[in-house]
């Protein structure tokens, strides 16, 4: 379970999170949608302990991330996988070395590392690309390599930061299927941050709209189609004129 309680965070005069509450049940996938610049990535970094909130609490299972010492946060991260928006692959390493680095830290026996790295890359459709460097891959392949690195240690919690942004519809669909497959295989508790409505409806059990620093709407993909919430409708239909602020 992931629980966020009353998270607030400001950068100077910019109040990004203003009391964000969300609970993600064990094994559940929640997509957090919202306009660009609303603070979706900032939110995810708080869950991972990469940023500390001004106030509020982040709980991963029974452990509190906020205020935890460095060692405890690092131990918690051993149970997390994080897919970065920019992939964040180590560009001085091959794709396989990126995955192996993750496995080594998670205490995978040396004899298994090679096999597990190969398996993970095959799962994301990158079998045969093990020896390539990130600079030699397309954007979609880098995203998939980032997913392979995040899921190779079989984490309990998965955090996806815009996993389909900047990708063509076919690759987007491939990534969505991958997220669904990993949900099935790992039974991980996941948060997917995205502004891609189709993707959110495909992969998520519930969808939360982040607006003005808090959850302004929360419901299932089915509910989102029949809601009267103006912001959600504007988001779903891609209509700026319906957006409450405009």
């Amino acid at each position: 379970m992931i629980r966020l309680e009353g998270l607030t965070r400001s950068f100077g005069d910019l109040h990004v999170l203003r009391g964000f509450d969300l609970e993600v049940a064990t094994g559940e996938t929640v997509a957090v949608i919202g306009r660009s610049g609303e603070g979706k990535s900032v939110l995810l970094k708080h869950v991972a302990g990469l940023l500390q909130p001004d106030s509020g609490e982040v709980w991963i299972g029974d452990e509190q991330v906020t205020g935890a010492d460095r060692e405890r946060v690092r131990r918690l991260r051993l149970s997390m996988g994080y897919v970065f928006q920019s992939s964040a692959l180590f560009d001085s390493m091959t794709v396989a070395e990126n995955v192996r680095l993750a496995l080594r830290r998670h205490g995978t026996p040396a004899a298994e590392i090679e096999e597990r790295a190969r398996e993970s890359l095959e799962t994301v459709g990158l079998g045969g690309w093990e020896g390539r460097y990130p600079a030699e891959l397309s954007g979609g392949m880098r995203k998939r390599a980032g997913v392979a690195r995040a899921v190779a240690p079989r984490p309990t919690y998965l955090l996806y930061d815009e996993p389909t942004s900047g990708l063509d519809p076919v690759t987007t669909s491939m990534i969505d299927e991958l997220v669904l497959q990993l949900k099935e295989d790992l039974r991980a508790t996941s948060i997917v941050v995205t502004h891609d409505m189709r993707s959110a409806c495909r992969v998520a059990d519930r969808i939360a709209l982040l607006r003005e620093g808090r959850v302004s709407w929360l419901g299932t993909p089915e509910e989102i189609e029949h809601t009267d919430d103006a912001a959600v409708k504007a988001f779903v239909e891609g209509r700026r004129d319906l957006w409450p602020d405009d």
């Binding site: 690092r74 991260r77 051993l78 970065f84 964040a88 692959l89 680095l101 830290r105």
Partner: peptide, 12 residues
């Protein structure tokens, strides 16, 4: 390019 954050997320 968030590679330092990635190191942190891998618990290094």
């Amino acid at each position: 390019t968030e590679q330092v954050d990635a190191l942190e997320m891998l618990a290094y």
